[in-house]
Amino acid sequence: MVERKGLRKIFSHLVLIFGVALVVTPIYVALVASTHDASDLLGRLPLWFGSHGSDNYSAILGTRLQEMGIASVGRQMFNSLVMAMGITVGKIIISLMAAYAIVFFRFPFRNLCFWMIFLTLMLPVEVRIVPTYEVVANLNMLDSYWGLTIPLIASATATFLFRQFFMTIPEELADAARIDGAGPVRFFFDVVLPLSRTNIAALFVILFIYGWNQYLWPLLVTTDENMYTVVMGRQRLVAVVDTEPEWNLIMATAVLAMLPPVAVVVGMQRLFVKGLVETEK
C-alpha cells in the first residue's frame, strides 16, 4: 500500500478486540456464574471466579438432580452423545451410499431419486412437526434413541456434497479399477472411500454440532426423563427451579452442554471452516 498504515492497524486491532470481547462475554459470564454459590448471584454478579465450582458441578453430575426428579446431567450428556453420533454417522453413511449410486450408476428413476432427496432440503423438521411426530408415535419410536436420530438422518446437503465430490473423481480411475476386475463394491471401499476422507471429516464436524444442538425434536419425542438430552434438559431445570432460580446450577449445566461442540469447533478449526464453506448451509 502507498500510505502509512500504523494508526489504522491499531484501530483495526481495537475494533477486533472489542468484537471478540462482545462474542466471548456471555460465555465468560456463564463460566464465572457456574463457580459461585446461588446466593452470590442474586443482586450483583461477581466478576471473577468463585470457590463453589466443584460443589456446583458435582451437584448437577451427582444425585442432586435426581432428588429434584430430573435425570443427572451425566445421563443427559450420554443421551446427547448417542443422538449426535447417531445422526452424524447415519447421515454420512446413507449420503455416501446414495451419492455413490447416483454418480456411478445409470438406472431408471435415477432423476426421480435425486429430486426426492432434493425435496428434503425444503422440509426442515420445524415446519412439519405435528405430522412427523405422528409418524414417529405410530412407529413406537417415542422415547427411544431411534426416534431421536432416524427422522433427522436424511440430509440433502450431505448427499449433494458427496455427489459434487464424486463427480471430480476421474472416470479413468473407475475404468482402471474395472479392467483390473474390481466390482462396484470393491471400488467404493478401496478407491472412493479413501479419497473422501477429508470431506467426511469436515462433514463430521458440522453434523456433530448439528446433532448435539438439536432442541425442538428431542423436546417433542422424549417424555421420559432418562431420555432427555442435555440441551433440552436444561429447559426442564429452569422450570423446576423457577421459584428460586439457582443460576449457578443452570449455568454449570449450560457450560457442560456447550463444552463438546465448542471443543470440536476450536480443536478442528480447519476442518470446521472447510465443512462450513463447502456445505454452504
Partner: peptide, 19 residues
C-alpha cells in the same frame, strides 16, 4: 474466538443472554 458462538445451541445462547 469468533467461531465459538456457532457451536452453542440456540436455547443455550438464549439462556446465556437471558442471564
Amino acid at each position: 474466538f469468533i467461531i465459538w458462538p456457532y457451536a452453542v445451541a440456540p436455547p443455550l445462547a438464549g439462556i446465556l443472554w437471558l442471564f
